[in-house]
Amino acid sequence: MSIEVRIPTILRTYTGGEKAVTGDGGSLAALIEDLEAKHPGLKDRLVEEKNGADDLRRFVNIYINDEDVRFLGGLEAPLSDGDQVVVLPAVAGG
């Protein structure tokens, strides 16, 4: 099983400069665990703890096959072989 994950510039310090990495997992949560094992530190930039459970960070967008994972079940979003995942920090401010 192989899922391609596009990494934004700001997080490439965790991937040795790689623009894209591959990972495994049947859900977004499982994929993030797999990425964390290969690229320590990455998970903390994508996920934060809310009320004792992991949740996606508010200002990081993750897409599976071009769909925002917030519409796919968030961390529970299912993944299959060949899916394409993109991580993009929000462009936002005050």
């Binding site: 925002d68 929000a90 462009v91 936002a92 005050g94």
Partner: peptide, 19 residues
């Protein structure tokens, strides 16, 4: 955000832009 004190690119448009 449609706000006088905050801005945020729409997430779908953000992906389209980066692609």
């Amino acid at each position: 955000a449609g706000s006088p004190t905050f801005y945020e690119f729409d997430s779908t448009e953000l992906l389209a832009l980066y692609k």
